[in-house]
Amino acid sequence: MKRSCVEKAKVESTRNPNWLQLPIDLIRNILQRLDTVEIVTSARNVCPLWWHICKDPLMWRTIHISNINVIPLDYHCLHKIYGHAIDLSRGHVEDISLELFGTDDILKYTAPSPRASHLRRLRIKYLVEFSDKRLSEFVKEFPLLEELTITFKNNTISRDSLEVIGRCCPRLKSLNLWRLIYPCVEYKYNDVAFAIAKTMSGLRHLKLSGIWLKSVELLAILDDCPLLESLDLLGCLCASLSPSLKRRCCEQIEDLRPRKYFLQHDCDADE
């Protein structure tokens, strides 16, 4: 009878583990998988141990705020949560990903050194209010940046800003520029391609969307970015690409999208 009680106790213990007895590193790993808003508003308030863990700057090497449509908070609250997370990181943040509330104020608060001096990855999706000038000033503070994703609507990113990014972020390996709305007329987006080719020779991965691209711009990228491994032009309007240029893309770029477009029958023919 006693043995049965002991076995039953073991089973109950297995079914209802004591989360406070988990190793600190494991708890930290679990918490880091949550969205930053969930950590700040809920998880860290569970118990004194979790509160203490969430005060560790190493907890904030990654700051992700996404799916805000399902979060019952306004932009002001989200800005405060983001600023609090940046402060808690004490300069250790390496990866920032924000969706739907990127603004000049966000850039302004992040940039002053040493708040994010170790930043290596930055993704800002759906910038709603930002200035080209602020973006230029912002990137100057992050020489270690390796990956940059910017999704925007009506605003444009100038050639000057992209050249500043290229010069100030020499380690940049991945660039994703996604404009959600095509311009009604052919815009001066050729400057974007030339700026990339001129200052970002170390790129390995490039994705462009919502941008007009002609042969001369694409050729500049192929010539001046020799390390390029992947090129995604799925959301671009590529006009008047010659058969020889298509063939070169197929031969030079390992991961090319949309590859079917470049593998049309005229890719096998000479100009």
Rank of each mutant, 00 (worst) to 15 (best):
S230D: 02
D223K: 10
I253E: 03
H205S: 15
G202I: 02
C249Q: 01
S242Y: 03
C250F: 11
Q252Y: 02
L203Y: 04
H205T: 07
L208D: 07
L203V: 06
L203C: 01
W212V: 09
S215T: 12
L233M: 10
S242F: 00
A220T: 00
A220L: 07
L213G: 03
P226F: 04
L233K: 07
S240R: 13
R204F: 13
G210F: 05
E251A: 12
S230K: 05
S209G: 15
C225K: 01
V216N: 10
K207T: 14
L218V: 11
G235W: 00
L227Y: 14
C238M: 13
C250A: 11
D224V: 02
R204I: 03
R247T: 01
S209T: 08
I253W: 02
L245W: 06
L227D: 08
L237K: 15
I221V: 15
W212E: 10
L228C: 05
L219W: 11
V216K: 15
L218P: 03
R248L: 03
S242V: 00
K246S: 13
S201H: 14
L208E: 06
C225G: 08
S230W: 07
L218I: 00
R248M: 05
L228W: 08
L208C: 09
S201I: 07
R204V: 07
H205Y: 11
S215A: 15
D232Q: 10
L218T: 02
S215W: 07
P226T: 09
A239L: 15
W212I: 10
L245I: 06
L234N: 09
P226G: 01
